[in-house]
């Protein structure tokens, strides 16, 4: 089990690690690594090998917003049906059920603020069961998935010590 977790954590940190590199780091054979990864993919533990991109440094115009959504849970379904309904849209990057004053936190991506505003007004808000939405545009990212977008803390150690 722990070797399985090791692999998950290594890939979560860097999905470009090769099977060979993972085998060296974990001390497993390459075949064992392949087998474990295959199983994890089949069990849908590993869903996708993605990259964390700092879009601000590219030509692509990207705006993201976090939208707090209050909804009416449905009989027998709770929040699941409406969460999945909201998740159908390509613009929606993530949907989570949250505790506190709102029910769902929805992250939406668009080219401009206006595009997102229109999405919320015309697609999200009218969905049956959606009671209210509050849109927060993301202005600057400092850290995501454990990675600093800014320079972050530097290595303060002396460069050579005994």
């Amino acid at each position: 089990m722990s070797k399985k977790m090791d692999i998950i954590e290594l890939l979560n940190e860097n999905s470009r690690l090769t099977d060979n590199q993972i085998s060296v780091i974990t001390g497993l054979s390459e075949d064992e690594v392949k087998e474990i990864i295959k199983n994890l993919e089949e069990e849908k533990v590993l869903l996708k090998y993605s990259t964390l991109v700092n879009w601000e440094k590219t030509e692509k115009e990207v705006v993201r917003a976090l939208i707090d959504v209050r909804v009416t849970p449905q009989q027998g379904q709770g929040f699941n049906a409406i969460a999945e309904r909201i998740g159908q849209y390509d613009e929606v990057k993530s949907v989570s059920l949250i505790s506190g004053g709102y029910d769902l936190s929805v992250e939406v991506e668009g080219k401009t603020m206006k595009e997102i505003a229109i999405f919320v007004a015309e697609r999200l808000a009218p969905i049956d069961g959606v009671l209210s939405t509050t849109t927060h545009f993301i202005l600057k990212r400092y850290k995501q998935d454990g990675v600093f977008f800014t320079d972050g803390p530097e290595d303060k150690r002396l460069v050579v010590t005994p």
Binding site: D155, R157, L158, V159, V160, T161, P162
Partner: peptide, 8 residues
């Protein structure tokens, strides 16, 4: 630097 004698 890979010269440091303390934890990172």
């Amino acid at each position: 630097s890979l010269g440091v004698g303390e934890p990172d």
